[in-house]
Amino acid sequence: MIHWFKQNLLSTKTFYKTSSYFLPWISTAFIVCFIYGLIGGLFLAPADYQQGDGFRIMYVHVPSCFTAMFIYLVMAFCALLTLVWRIKIAAIAMSCSASIGASLTFLALVTGSIWGKPMWGTWWIWDARLTSVLILFFLYLGFMALRSVIPDHQNRDKACSILALVGVINLPIIHYSVNWWNTLHQGSSFAQLAKPSIAPTMLYPLLSMIVAFFLFYSLILLIRMRNEILLRDIKSQWIKEALTC
């Protein structure tokens, strides 16, 4: 059955053709969510009683952080599909996700640091959460480094899959050991300063922005995957037909 799926639903050709129908829908949904999130977050939501208008960077920071972590899970799932069932599309999705994940992690770190300066009085602190995200960023960069050095793409996909799997097995261990390390070294943590319950006028734009970031990821991923498919199968007949008509 898997074989049938691979031949029909999961072939690069089918993917290339069906994905073109999805692209406009995803981009429309992304624009709607993004605009509502921006307007709601920047103008409609009231200023925070403690942080003033400074908290509004949350509307970029939180979604990018969520998406960045989600992307690593997607990559690990694709890695499993690549290694076990050798699904080509999964390998392409995995390798195209890495740089999107890395840039979103970077965005999360930068916005977090900008948020931290006025609120905590420092650009960076060795807090458990911050350190975990930084390590996630290193994992993405390592993955991209490995991807860039292996020339043949079949070997590259498999090697990268193993790295992604090792990463996903290790991420919880790293996360908990970093948490543990932090409580050991410094008593107070900013995690205790977590917002109590958030007002709906602040929450809905945030949720909308999170959805927008997920849509943005899938949009960029689709475009990059289509590009990668064109590059890999450049010599095949169906691409010539698809490009000429």
Binding site: I135, F138, L139, L141, G142, A145, L146, V149, L163, V166, G167, N170, I173, I174, S177, V178, W180, W181
Partner: peptide, 16 residues
Amino acid sequence: LLSILIMPFYIPILIF
């Protein structure tokens, strides 16, 4: 390359 691939995985052992 080997160092940057593997170093993040060494963190738990270093911490403990």
